[in-house]
Design a protein around this nucleic acid. Structure first.
Length: 479
RNA sequence: GGCCCGGUAGUCUAGUUGGCCGAGGACGCCGCCCUCUCAAGGCGGAGAUCACGGGUUCGAAUCCCGUCCGGGCUACCA
């Protein structure tokens, strides 16, 4: 029973995917993987206006970055393709003409303007605002005359009267709707392109999707899809699971106005895919009452629809950051160094050459426990790549300590072995001689060498910077 | 307006065959310890009248009714 599981993610190619869609993709992927099933990627690009090639590429890139590989879909193929709706137009047309032939759908010649006008009238009169079924039973002559007038038409679905559509939602239980609540919705636009309702229903049926896991916003679309499947005589009914919405910190649906909603924005700030996946998994799903950290493999092992929450979940960057810090701490120095190269470049200095990489590898152990995002690293390591001038606070700390800094330079200059322990020893000895507290002793040096009052641990940093450069900066700060 | 879905601390949640919950964990927040800064780590703390009001019951976050609030759909958007 479970081995036949087929799930899909059907994004519109409108650029880097929304984190909400990323979560939906993740849940579909996890469910398929957990059951040893098939995960299908289908691109819903019927809205030609917005579907560009770059946007399409961004979608695939995001999914790959998250580690969600698809078994069927663009670039990998599959037996039930093509997997871009723009290449499946024939199927939608033939499904539509079948429906019309069978009397389950009909052409509607009303223009948008007429519809709009009648809708307003109905609203003013307090009548239901839906389509008034004017073209539902058009005579042959009437139809011909419309055609003769050069009117175009859409195709509408003939919603049956007096029925109750019931379906079992895995996360919400039974949901039922009276067909009187459903209008004769449009299947096919007048330009011959399919509407969402038609396209997904046809594709889900043709692609044998067994479990439809999607956002709560589509819950009221479900009865229409069920009616359509029935009219198309599709055998069997998929299992539905509607996920709670993702909202912002005010409880409003996540929108571009709130903050970053695109996966790429998080990638650019230095969030790791492991953290993103872990966080997204927990936004609306839980394993037990205490586990927070999950690798992809662990998620595959534990994930199930039974423990999906019903209430909307607020996207909390704080928790994402915490998880990200956790995963950064797990990185090896080599991996961290490699990951930081592009962030340094973005910050304006090159660390991609051999020396640069070596330096990054050396600082990584110092960085690892103080980074929450990769983009926080450049400011911390910049002093290792470029000469620095003290910021305001650092300047104040240096002020009046010239004599001390020169002495520190002298001591360090005299060191035979340039290593953390020796550096620390020399500086602590000097501090003791001058009866300085650690903080008083080391902050000026930090300020002089790194240009700021906040940096990775001092002695290790000096070792990495090098004896010559350290001494040079101390002397210059004293001047 | 109609229909549908939802409502446990600032946030994610555990809990849903009623008692083990005078509500558990995590993020965040506050304090202490550690400490050369910042972190990380350890320890401790504040924070929830379980949306509200009735009811059933010896006993309700958990069951019933009503109310309020939020959201979705109601498009030739998806």
């Amino acid at each position: 029973m479970t081995e036949g599981v087929r799930t899909r993610i059907a994004p519109a190619p409108s650029g880097s995917i929304h984190v909400g869609n990323a979560r939906t993709a993740l849940y579909n992927w996890l469910f398929a993987r957990h059951h040893g099933g098939t995960f299908v990627l289908r691109v819903e690009d019927t809205d030609r206006k917005r579907a560009t090639d770059e946007a399409y590429g961004a979608v695939l890139e995001d999914l790959r970055w998250l580690g969600l590989d698809w078994d069927e879909g663009p670039e990998v193929g599959g037996d039930l393709g093509p997997y871009r709706q723009s290449e499946r137009l024939e199927r939608y047309r033939s499904a539509t003409s079948d429906l019309v032939e069978r009397g389950a759908a009909y052409p509607c010649y009303c223009t948008p303007e007429e519809l709009d006008e009648r809708r307003k009238l109905a609203q003013a009169a307090g009548r239901p605002q839906g389509y008034d079924r004017q073209c539902r039973e058009l005579s042959g002559e009437h139809r011909a005359s419309y055609e003769a007038d050069g009117r175009t038409h859409v195709v509408r679905f003939k919603v049956p009267d007096g029925r109750t559509v019931v379906f079992g939602d895995v996360v919400r239980g039974e949901i039922s709707t009276q067909t009187s609540q459903i209008q004769d919705f449009v299947l096919m636009r007048s330009d011959g392109s399919p509407m969402y309702m038609l396209a997904t229903t046809v594709d889900d049926a043709l692609m044998n999707i067994t479990h439809i896991i999607r956002g709560e916003d589509l819950i009221s679309a479900t009865p229409r899809q069920l009616l359509l499947r029935e009219a198309m005589a599709v055998a069997g009914v998929p299992v539905f699971a509607h996920l709670p919405l993702l909202v912002d910190d005010r409880g409003k649906p996540l929108s571009k106005r709130w903050g970053d909603v695109a996966v790429s924005a998080y990638r650019d700030q230095g969030y790791l895919p492991e953290a993103m996946v872990n966080y997204l998994a927990l936004l609306g799903w839980s394993y037990d009452d205490k586990t927070n950290i999950f690798s992809l493999d662990e998620l595959v092992e534990h994930f199930g629809l039974e423990r999906v929450a019903r209430n909307p979940a607020a996207f909390d960057v704080n928790k994402l950051e915490w998880l990200n810090g956790h995963y950064i701490r797990q990185m090896t120095p080599e991996a961290l160094a490699e990951a930081l190269v592009p962030f340094c470049a973005a910050a304006g200095f090159e660390a991609g050459d051999d020396r640069g990489r070596a330096v990054l590898r050396d600082v990584s152990p110092l960085l690892v426990e103080r980074l929450k995002r990769l983009d926080e690293a450049p400011p911390m390591v910049r002093f290792l790549f470029e000469d620095v001038s003290p910021d305001a606070k650092a300047a104040t700390t240096i002020d009046g300590r010239a004599d001390y800094l020169v002495e520190a330079a002298v001591r360090l200059e005299g060191l035979e072995k340039w290593a953390t322990a020796a550096i620390e020893d020399a500086l602590r000895t000097l501090a003791a001689e001058r009866e300085l507290k650690s903080k008083q002793a080391f902050q000026p040096i930090r300020a002089a060498v790194t240009g700021t009052l906040i940096s990775p641990p001092l002695f290790e940093s000096l070792e990495i910077l090098g004896q010559q450069e350290t001494v040079k900066r101390l002397r210059r700060a004293a001047a």
